[in-house]
Amino acid sequence: MTEYKLVVVGAGGVGKSALTIQLIQNHFVDEYDPTIEDSYRKQVVIDGETCLLDILDTAGQEEYSAMRDQYMRTGEGFLCVFAINNTKSFEDIHHYREQIKRVKDSEDVPMVLVGNKCDLPSRTVDTKQAQDLARSYGIPFIETSAKTRQGVDDAFYTLVREIRKHKEKMSKDGKKKKKKSKTKCVIM
């Protein structure tokens, strides 16, 4: 069974824990209790493949930012979460993405942009803004509501699919490099 290491990042209060708990335990946590770091595991079937999701729910508070490099190193894919009623959390996505790329030393890291709290009427981040940002990053965008469960499975499952595509691409690139290195030079 394939294991996928997913990391949920975003500013404090955007609903990272609520999304994760909704996926794992099928219930909505409405009281806000700032996370330092929590880890969850769940076995699911995605596109006919049974897999184990190892999900790291991270601290959004700035005082825990020193811990970010460590979990970013171990993560295979990242859910970059903002709240649709919090423009600052949307603007912060850029910083999370840049930090992930720096730590992973790669421009090509599996990510999904997630606009959470889409059940709320007080939207300050337009869907088109988020779609445009995701398009500019070359990553999928999904709106979710941890409260109603809308888009929750889709967000995590899409990230797994992005990781699969990335692994497939990397193995193809690896095979191309191996083929090239088999060419021999004969000096007579």
Score class of each variant (00 low, 15 high):
V125C: 13
V125H: 12
Q99M: 15
V81D: 01
T124V: 11
K104Y: 06
I84L: 15
G115T: 07
G115V: 12
Q99F: 07
G77A: 14
T74E: 15
C118Q: 14
D105F: 06
V109L: 05
V112R: 00
R123F: 11
R68E: 06
D119C: 06
G77R: 00
Q99P: 02
G77H: 01
Q70M: 07
H94V: 08
S122W: 08
E98V: 02
Q70W: 11
V112N: 00
Q99K: 04
F82V: 14
H94I: 13
H95K: 14
L113Y: 08
E98G: 04
Y71P: 04
E98N: 08
D126I: 08
V114Y: 02
D69Q: 05
A66Q: 12
Y96R: 04
N116T: 15
F90T: 05
T74K: 04
L79I: 11
F78D: 01
Y64I: 00
M67Q: 00
S122M: 09
M72A: 04
C80Q: 04
Q70Y: 14
V114R: 00
Q70T: 08
E98L: 03
D126T: 09
P110S: 04
H94E: 15
F90Q: 14
L120I: 10
K88H: 12
E63H: 07
P121C: 08
K101F: 08
T124R: 09
V81I: 10
V103S: 07
F82K: 01
M72Q: 04
S106A: 11
V103D: 05
G77S: 03
E98P: 03
V109E: 02
E76P: 01
A66S: 11
R68K: 05
F78L: 03
Y71S: 03
S65R: 08
V81Y: 01
K104P: 03
K117H: 14
I100M: 07
R102Y: 04
I100N: 03
L79G: 00
S122Q: 09
R68M: 06
S65Y: 07
K101Q: 12
M67S: 01
V125I: 12
L79W: 01
G77V: 14
C80N: 03
K88A: 11
M72D: 00
V103L: 10
D92W: 10
M111R: 01
I100C: 05
G77N: 01
S65K: 09
L120Q: 10
T87V: 12
I84P: 15
N116C: 15
E76L: 08
G115Y: 07
K88T: 14
R123L: 11
L120F: 14
M111D: 00
N86E: 10
Q70L: 02
D92C: 05
T124D: 14
V125G: 13
N116A: 15
Q99E: 08
D69S: 06
R73V: 07
F82T: 15
A83M: 05
M67Y: 00
R97V: 15
M72E: 02
G75K: 02
N116P: 01
L113R: 00
D119M: 06
N116W: 00
C80S: 04
G115H: 06
K117E: 12
T74S: 11
C80V: 11
